[in-house]
Amino acid sequence: MTKISVYIVEDDPMVLEVNKGFLEKMNGFTLMGAATNGKDAVAEIKMLKPNLVLLDMFLPDISGMEILVELRTERIPCDIIMITAARDAVTIREVMRLGAVDYMVKPFRFERFQKSLQDYYKMAKKITGLNLLKQEDIDEWLGSSENEVELPKGLNELTMKQILLGLGGAAMPVTAEQLGQNLGMARVTVRKYLDFLAIKEKVDIEMQYGYVGRPTKYYSLK
């Protein structure tokens, strides 16, 4: 498999250089181009047709959401990973409905960037050159599996995905209240999902003790 071509859209020059540096550390990827505004990005993406676009949400002219809609409307054959400070649940849901393969919340560590691109690379490599996919291949691509434990009554897949995306995009461990604020969800709702993930050993829990009262739980993905 040839290297995956990547185009980066980021209006902050310093953040752009950081993301370029992260990408240089990754095997199997090559930078095809970059833009600091939406209109240049759309024109070059349509012309170059990269395999993968790392797309910022907030740009000086048009939004990353508008770019995503235009690329999907014109059926440009590229995958999208959103990289943004936007954490509201409405935006995240809309981005996922439009087919983004991942959603990274700024600021993030290299480890999160690395995981996102490695996961993308593994599946891209697996399906390259195949005409037909097995069900397990499709499930892996969509992030689901027959081997996963069925969610109990009261929990739904869409909310679970938002919780997992929120945890994955967090720069450091978060409390249920913090994650709820980031996602626009009630703390009680978030806690139910986090408790379920803890039972299934999908999250790490760090206890921080104060001078009085109960210890505070901080959650992060394993």
Rank of each mutant, 00 (worst) to 15 (best):
S63L: 11
D88P: 08
L165Y: 11
M82Y: 02
L164A: 04
L98H: 14
L167M: 05
N131E: 13
I67V: 13
A124C: 07
M123T: 13
R109V: 12
L155Y: 03
E136W: 03
I76D: 07
I127E: 00
V90L: 11
R109G: 10
L98T: 02
V105L: 11
V90H: 11
Q118V: 12
M104P: 00
G166E: 06
L165N: 09
A100V: 15
Y120S: 00
R93C: 12
E111R: 12
P77A: 10
A85V: 06
L167W: 08
G154L: 01
V149W: 06
G129P: 08
G166C: 05
F110A: 00
K115H: 13
E146T: 13
G99H: 00
A89C: 08
E70Y: 04
I76G: 01
L167C: 07
L71I: 03
V101L: 02
A170R: 02
G169W: 04
S144R: 14
T128I: 08
D61T: 06
Q118E: 14
F113P: 08
N156E: 12
I81N: 01
L117P: 06
R87L: 07
T84F: 06
A170E: 06
D88W: 09
Y103L: 00
S63Q: 04
I163L: 02
T128C: 05
I92D: 05
N131D: 11
D79Y: 09
L71G: 00
N147A: 14
S145A: 05
F113K: 00
R87F: 06
R75Y: 08
G99C: 00
R87C: 12
S145R: 04
L142Y: 02
E66Y: 04
D102R: 03
E150K: 15
Q135G: 02
E111L: 11
V69A: 10
L158T: 15
I92N: 04
D137H: 11
A124P: 04
R87A: 14
R93E: 13
M123H: 09
G99E: 01
E150M: 15
I81D: 03
P60C: 03
G99A: 03
K115L: 12
E136G: 00
L133G: 06
A170T: 06
F110Y: 15
E111D: 15
P77D: 10
Q114M: 10
I62S: 07
V90N: 09
K134M: 07
L142Q: 03
F108N: 01
L155D: 00
T159E: 01
D139G: 07
D137I: 08
F110L: 03
E150W: 06
V69Q: 14
E140A: 14
P77F: 03
Q118D: 10
P60V: 11
R97I: 06
Q118M: 10
A85P: 05
G129V: 08
Q135P: 06
Q135W: 12
D61M: 09
K125F: 09
F108W: 02
A85D: 07
L71V: 02
I83S: 00
N131M: 13
L71Q: 00
A100P: 07
M82V: 10
T91Y: 15
Q135N: 08
V95L: 05
L167K: 07
Y120V: 02
N156D: 15
K153F: 09
R93D: 11
A170S: 15
